[in-house]
C-alpha cells in the first residue's frame, strides 16, 4: 500500500472494494455510549469484516496497524495480528521494530507488552539482550513502569541475561534511591539470579549497600524494608547482626527523619533484641518535651514518640504499643 492509497478512505480505496464493512453494534440505548470518530468507525468496520472472514493477508495486517494506532488497547486486533503474522510467516524481528515505535507512546498498555512477549518467546534467547535494552529504554522514560518491570523479570527468567542486572539496579538507585521498583528488582536478582549464589551468599555485601543507602536518606521506606527482607526466614541473624541495630542508632543520633529507624528498632525489640544504654539515651533524646512522663520501657517509649512524629498513623502506633508485653 503506497502513501497515496493510505490517505484514501477505505470505502473509496479500490483495494478494499471487495470487502463489505460490518458496523459496530452498541446495542439499544447504550449504558456507556461512545462518540466515535469517523476514521475510527471506518477502520473498525473493515476490521470486523476481515476478522470475521479470517482473512490473513498483507492488507489485513496493514489494517490491524491502523486499528492499533487508533486504539492500541483493543486486544482483539492484537490477537488477529498475531494470527496473520503466523499465517504469513512474517519475520518477527521486523515486528519487534514495529512494536518499539508504538510502545513509547503507550507504555502502560497491557496488549503491547503481551504482544512483545509472544514475539520474544518465539525468537528465543537470541533476543534476550535486545529485550533487556528495550525495557531499559522504557524505564528511562518512567523508571517505575510496572509493565516494563514485569516484562523485564519475564525476560530474565525465560531468556536469561542476568549478568549485568545487579549493576543496572545500582545504576537506577544512583539516579533515584527512592525508586521502590529498583529495590524490588534488586531483591529479585539477589534471590533469583543463577549467577549470584542466593540470598545468604549475598547478604553481607547487600547489608553494607543498604545501610549506606539508608544513611544517605533515612526517610526512604524502601531500603528499610529491603534490609528486613535480606533476613527472610532468619530472624535470629536479623536481631543479632550489629549492622542492623547500629544503623538504627546512627539515624536516631542524627535526630532527623527517624520514623523508620524507630519502627525498625521497635521490631527488633519485639523479637528479643536487648538494647544497651546507648539506645535508651538516643531514644530518650527524641522524646517531645510536651509529652507524657517518660516510659521506663524502651519499646513503649518508641511507640509514644512515633505517635507524636507520625500522627497520620497514630492508631497503628497505639496498637503497636498496646500489643507490647507488660514491662517487668
Amino acid at each position: 500500500m503506497d502513501a497515496e492509497e493510505h490517505k484514501l478512505p477505505l470505502s473509496q480505496n479500490p483495494e478494499w472494494a471487495d470487502v463489505t464493512p460490518i458496523p459496530q453494534d452498541d446495542g439499544p440505548n447504550p449504558v456507556v455510549p461512545i462518540a466515535y470518530k469517523p476514521e475510527f468507525i471506518e477502520t473498525m468496520d473493515y476490521f470486523r469484516a476481515v476478522y470475521k472472514a479470517n482473512e490473513f493477508s498483507p492488507r489485513a495486517l496493514q489494517l490491524t496497524h491502523q486499528a492499533i494506532l487508533l486504539n492500541p488497547g483493543n486486544y482483539t486486533v492484537w490477537h488477529f495480528r498475531r494470527l496473520i503474522l503466523d499465517a504469513l510467516g512474517i519475520d518477527l524481528n521486523e515486528e519487534l521494530e514495529f512494536m518499539s515505535g508504538i510502545s513509547e507512546n503507550n507504555p502502560k498498555n497491557y496488549q503491547i507488552w503481551h504482544h512483545r512477549r509472544w514475539i520474544a518467546e518465539k525468537l528465543g534467547t537470541d533476543v534476550a539482550s535486545k529485550e533487556l535494552d528495550f525495557t531499559k529504554r522504557m524505564l528511562f522514560l518512567d523508571a517505575k513502569n510496572y509493565h516494563a518491570w514485569s516484562y523485564r523479570q519475564w525476560v530474565l527468567q525465560t531468556l536469561g541475561g542476568w549478568e549485568n542486572e545487579l549493576n543496572y539496579c545500582h545504576q537506577l538507585l544512583e539516579e533515584d534511591v527512592f525508586n521502590n521498583s529498583a529495590w524490588n528488582q534488586r531483591y529479585f536478582v539477589v534471590t533469583g539470579s543463577p549467577l549470584l549464589g542466593g540470598l545468604e551468599a549475598m547478604r553481607e555485601s547487600e547489608v553494607k549497600y543498604t545501610v549506606e543507602a539508608i544513611l544517605r536518606s533515612p526517610e526512604n521506606e524502601s531500603p528499610w524494608r529491603y534490609l528486613r527482607g535480606l533476613y527472610k526466614n532468619d530472624p535470629k541473624s536479623w536481631i543479632s547482626d550489629p549492622q542492623v541495630s547500629s544503623v538504627c542508632l546512627k539515624v536516631l543520633s542524627a535526630k532527623a527523619n527517624h520514623v523508620f529507624a524507630l519502627s525498625t528498632l521497635l521490631d527488633l525489640l519485639s523479637h528479643g533484641f536487648q538494647a544497651n544504654q546507648e539506645f535508651r539515651d538516643a531514644v530518650d533524646s527524641l522524646r517531645p518535651s510536651n509529652s507524657d512522663p517518660p516510659d521506663s520501657d524502651l519499646a513503649k517509649a518508641i511507640c509514644s514518640i512515633l505517635r507524636h512524629v507520625d500522627p497520620m498513623r497514630v492508631n497503628y502506633w497505639t496498637w503497636r504499643k498496646n500489643k507490647l508485653p507488660l514491662s517487668v
Binding site: 447504550p30 449504558v31 456507556v32 462518540a35 466515535y36 475510527f40 486504539n71 482483539t76
Partner: peptide, 22 residues
Amino acid sequence: SVEKRKDSFESVVLEHLRMNGA
C-alpha cells in the same frame, strides 16, 4: 450523561472495555 461529552479520546479508549464502564 457521559454520552454528551465530546471527549472522544476517552470514548475510543472505552470502546473495547465498555463492559467495565457499565
